[in-house]
Nucleic acid binder design. Structure first.
Length: 791
DNA sequence: ATTCGCAAAGTTTTT
DNA sequence: CTTTGCGAAT
């Protein structure tokens, strides 16, 4: 019977897939291009192992998101019911491991996982305690450095500051203090979850060996996105027993910025010399025309192993590239197209995805989709859990679960107001630091603190008693605990006190939290409880909340889209500075990562794909001409459909472009789903020619060019456009920062005419000190002001 | 202790 | 142009 099952499991797989499934032992590297049936291979491989007689509890599968893990578990349960394979994210895996061995790294099992906001608060305390002047290194910078160290697997005792390095000198003071505060709070940050586990295994050889044996078979998905700490963890758990299979695609490595090390996958063959390598190159997802676009784009990366994308799928429709006058047009047209396709019955809402580089780009689309009555879901971050009211309630739960959680203490001690203010808090903090105890302990002993008056101490003790009382009510279910907290603190009443609409909405969010907790209780009858609930709340990711079955248009970042697929994909905002992001230009490796990001975006599409960019983009207060993304030059434009660039020709000046923009007739949204396209080929369109506007990166950025707009026929403009025009006109004769010099007469909207008497700063921070006859001297940052020449 | 007002900074991407 | 954070005032 077992043999028959094994046969069934490899039936219908291609050669590469089959060989990956059948090689259950020893190190295995699966290079899997997009849409190559990777998840299928992984699940079938695990089922195959189980069918072979390998105990399922010896198998661990590490995935990138919880969603991917759920998906895997579901599929696996169909192939192999009742199996005990552990599937989950690295962070969850480590979290579980740490709960068990917390004491070995100086924690208690009920430790708290701090999110970024929480860790930042701790960091600020650490910086203050270390008496570091944050003049030239911001707290964020320092935090990033610590995070980078941790991602590199450098724990405190392995950190050796380089002599003469200023940042290292700061880190040598802040890093230890930060870790000390975390430990006192019995808390970890995200990076610590991994790092503590690495330390745990490194420092306890016999434990390491037993776990190595216990997790006999390991699989790691998205291996190209693992960082050094994760790499070390994997190596530590696959030393004696090397039944390790990793899957990944170097072309989809998009997390370098958070420490992902692309050489982890490129060097896998060196790390495990006896490795077998399987390549899954056939794509089952996309049309030929989409794949050619993806292929040609990624060919431009230098640091890469060549790989071909092949598919037996149809040719499909040509990929579209559209230039819109403004983001409003972009959003309106795309929403219209989607609405029309749905209306005509060609598509469902859930067939569409709108992908972008940064989260804020979703706003315009939310607006237009709502107007068109198209249902949508936006995946952005842990937005729900970041709300003040939610964080407040969760903080109470954290404090109940882990009374030493000082960040939670500081958050809720005066919410609702208990007349325990900033000064009192500072006194408690000092006491807690001097005695190396948590805030809660300090509060308990507040009568010992001379500087705290009796009356205040009484209020503090009342709070301590409140929490003590609540902690007795903590039981196996979460929902009743939240209800007790709300009841005992009067939080909800405090929230709705002012009767405002906003307050009402917030109360609604709190209610939603209660419902979510209830659901959690129902779904986790065995393995629930406060600790697990809080762990889950801390480790949810963007895509985890994505509802793949519900009928919504999906909007998310290209990062979040990894691993997903949609029939129709819109990749929007393809402008230099957005993609590639302005913070990566100038660094070749980072630009290559941006290119991979677009590659990921493209390869999400099954049947239809549209790129778009805008000629103007609203940034920092007003509209600026936007340069097309350099990646657009790298696509096979001769086979794509190009819209909206009709007026652009090689050799245009900025003014010419502006005139073209003003007379653009793309305002009436073209209907792509239906009309025969006006096919403007590359030879006709300026963006192909390398006209200096688009291709010559040596040129000054557009933001520095004159932004003069010629008025166009008002009768043809919508209200939004008029508003936009107005704004542009306001900026029309705006003084260019580099034209400003001492002695110049300038005019300010509010202060009138004045004379520049001094200039300070460089780049965007150039500031002029200007003497206005009626207002005296004013310091004005040129990049943000509306200075103009008088007259 | 809270509230108000002004100034500076700012927009990646996420476990 | 917004938001956030800090400082001063009540």
């Amino acid at each position: 019977m077992a043999v028959e099952t094994q046969q069934e499991l490899i039936h219908g797989l291609n050669d590469g897939q089959r060989s990956a499934v059948q090689q259950t032992d020893g190190p295995l590297l699966i290079i899997a291009g997009p849409g190559s049936g990777k998840t299928r291979v992984i699940t079938h491989r695990i089922a195959f192992m189980i069918a072979k007689g390998i105990p399922s509890w010896q198998i661990v599968a590490l995935t990138f998101t919880n969603k991917a893990a759920d998906e895997m578990r579901n599929r696996l349960n169909k192939l192999s019911p009742g199996n005990l394979t552990w599937a989950g994210t690295f962070h969850r895996f480590c979290s579980r491991l740490l709960r068990q061995y917390a004491a070995l790294v100086g924690l208690q099992e009920n430790y708290t996982i701090y999110d970024m906001g929480d860790s930042k608060k701790v960091l600020k305390h650490a910086i203050a305690n270390a008496e570091i002047d944050v003049k030239h290194f911001s707290a964020d910078k320092i935090g990033n450095q610590i995070s980078n160290l941790k991602n590199e697997g450098v724990s405190l005792e392995h950190f050796i500051p380089r002599p003469g390095n200023v940042m290292d000198k700061i880190l040598s003071k802040v890093y230890p203090e930060y870790q000390k505060l975390l430990q006192m709070a019995n808390a970890v940050d995200f990076d610590d979850l991994l790092l503590h586990c690495v330390d745990l295994l490194r420092d306890n050889p016999e434990l390491r060996e037993s776990l190595d044996l216990k997790f006999n078979y390991m699989m790691v998905d998205e291996y190209q996105d693992t960082n050094r700490a994760q790499y070390q963890l994997i190596r530590l758990l696959n030393h004696n027993v090397q039944n390790l299979a990793v899957t990944g695609d170097p072309d989809q490595s998009i997390y370098g910025w958070r420490g992902a090390n692309i050489s982890n996958i490129l060097d896998f063959e060196k790390d495990y010399p006896s490795v077998s390598v399987v390549r899954l190159e056939e794509n089952y997802r996309s049309t030929k025309s989409i794949l050619r676009v993806a292929d040609q784009l990624i060919e431009n990366n230098v640091r890469r192993k060549k790989k071909k994308l092949i598919t037996a799928n149809d040719e499909g429709k040509p990929v579209r590239l559209v230039a819109y006058p403004s983001p409003q047009d972009e959003a309106a047209d795309i929403a219209d197209s989607i609405a029309l396709a749905i209306q005509k019955g060609n598509r469902k809402a859930k067939d569409f995805a709108i992908l972008y580089r940064t989260n804020w780009l979703s706003r315009a689309f939310e607006h237009t989709l709502r107007q068109c009555g198209v249902p949508y879901q936006v995946l952005n971050g842990h937005e729900f859990y970041q709300r003040k009211e939610i964080k407040d309630v969760i903080a109470y739960l954290h404090l109940l679960n882990n009374p030493n959680d000082s960040v939670a203490f500081e958050r809720v001690v005066n919410i609702p107001s208990r007349k325990i203010g900033k000064v009192t808090l500072t006194r408690l903090q000092r006491y807690s630091r001097e005695n190396s105890i948590s805030m809660m302990e300090a509060a308990r002993n507040c009568e010992q603190i001379e500087t705290i008056k009796k009356a205040v101490g009484k209020r503090i003790l009342a709070f301590v008693e409140l929490m003590d009382g609540l902690s007795k009510e903590v039981d196996s279910e979460v929902e009743p605990v939240i209800r007790s907290v709300l009841a005992a603190t009067g939080y909800r009443e405090w929230l709705t006190d002012d009767g405002s609409e906003e307050a009402f909405e917030r109360a609604g969010n709190v209610d939603e939290l209660v419902v979510a907790a209830q659901e959690f209780d129902n779904e986790h009858p065995e393995d629930g409880g406060l600790a697990r609930y809080l762990e889950q709340a801390a480790l949810v990711s963007d895509t985890d909340v994505w509802e793949s079955d519900a009928n919504f248009v999906t909007m998310m970042t290209m990062h979040a889209a990894k691993g997903l697929e949609f029939p129709c994909v819109y990749v929007v905002g393809l402008e230099d500075g957005l993609l590639p992001h302005e913070r990566s230009v100038g660094n070749d490796d980072e630009v290559e990562e941006e290119r991979r990001l677009l590659f990921v975006g493209i390869t999400r599409a099954e049947e239809e794909l549209q790129f778009s960019r805008c000629l103007n983009r609203f940034r920092r207060g007003s509209y600026w001409p936007a340069i097309p993304s350099r990646f657009l030059m790298e696509l096979p434009r001769d086979e794509m459909e190009i819209f909206g660039a009709q007026h652009q020709q090689a050799g245009m000046t900025a003014d010419d472009l502006q005139r073209a923009i003003d007379s653009m007739d793309v305002v009436d949204a073209p209907d792509f789903s239906d009309l025969p396209a006006i096919d403007i080929h590359a030879s006709d369109a300026a963006i192909s020619v390398g006209g200096d506007l688009f291709c010559d990166q040596e040129n000054e950025p557009a933001t520095k060019k004159s932004a003069v707009k010629k008025p166009s026929m008002a009768s043809l403009m919508t209200g939004a456009e008029l508003a936009k025009q107005h704004q542009s006109n306001a900026a029309a004769d705006r003084l260019e920062p580099e034209a400003c010099e001492v002695g110049l007469e300038v005019e300010h909207v509010e202060y009138g005419v004045g004379k520049v008497i001094a200039m300070t700063g460089t780049g965007r921070k150039v500031t002029a000190t200007i003497n206005f006859p009626n207002f005296g001297n004013k310091r004005i940052c040129l990049a943000f002001s509306n200075l103009r020449l008088p007259g």
